[in-house]
Simulated assay, not measured.
Amino acid sequence: MSTTERGAGPAPAAAAPRRPAVPPAAGAIVMATGIISVGFHLIGDDTLSAILLAVAAAVWVWLAATFAATLLRDRARWQAQAANPPALTAVAATCVLGTRLSLSGHRTMAQALLVIAVAVWPWLLVSVLRHWKRPAPGAAFLVCVATQGLAVLAATLSLADGTAWLGRAAVIAFCLGVFLYGEALARFDIRQVLTGSGDHWIAAGALAISALAGSKLTASPLWSGGTHTTLKIATLVLLSLDFAWYAVLAVCEILRPRPRYDIRRWSTVFPLGMTAVATLSTSAAADLPGLHGLGTVLLWIAAAVWLLVLLGLGRSLAAAAQR
Rank of each mutant, 00 (worst) to 15 (best):
T227E: 08
I209K: 04
T218S: 13
W201P: 08
L212N: 13
H200K: 13
A204S: 15
A203I: 09
S220N: 05
S215A: 15
G225T: 05
S224I: 11
T230F: 07
L207W: 11
G225L: 02
S224H: 12
S220I: 03
L217I: 02
S220M: 08
S210L: 01
G214P: 06
A211F: 01
I202C: 11
T218N: 03
T227D: 04
W201L: 15
A203S: 13
T230H: 09
G205D: 07
T230W: 05
A206E: 12
A206Q: 15
H200M: 11
A208M: 02
T218E: 05
A204F: 12
A213N: 07
D199E: 15
L217C: 02
L231C: 02
D199K: 10
L207Q: 11
H228Q: 02
L207M: 14
L217Y: 00
S224D: 11
L207T: 14
I202M: 14
A211I: 05
A203G: 14
W201A: 12
L222A: 00
T229E: 05
G205N: 10
L212V: 08
G205F: 07
W223H: 07
L207H: 14
G226F: 07
L207E: 11
A204I: 10
H228W: 06
A204W: 12
T227P: 05
L207I: 13
W201E: 12
A204C: 15
A208L: 00
H228V: 00
D199I: 13
S210T: 08
L217E: 01
T218D: 08
A203Y: 07
G226N: 04
S220C: 07
S215C: 08
I209Q: 06
S210H: 03
G226I: 09
A206S: 15
S210V: 02
G225Q: 05
L217A: 08
S220H: 04
S210P: 10
G205P: 15
L231H: 03
S215E: 04
G205Q: 03
A204K: 09
L212T: 09
H200L: 13
A211L: 04
A219L: 12
G205W: 07
T227S: 09
G226A: 14
T218P: 02
L212F: 03
H200Y: 14
A213I: 09
L212K: 03
L231Q: 05
T227G: 12
T227N: 10
W201I: 10
L231V: 06
S220F: 03
K216L: 09
L222T: 00
H228Y: 00
S220K: 07
H228S: 04
K216A: 06
H200I: 13
A219V: 04
S220T: 05
T230M: 10
I202N: 11
T230Y: 04
H228G: 01
W223Y: 15
H200R: 15
T230N: 09
I209W: 01
D199Q: 14
K216M: 09
A213D: 05
A208Y: 00
A204N: 15
A219P: 10
A208Q: 06
W223N: 01
P221A: 01
P221M: 13
K216W: 09
W201G: 09
A208I: 00
L207C: 09
A204T: 11
G214A: 04
P221W: 15
S215Y: 08
T229A: 15
G214L: 03
D199P: 13
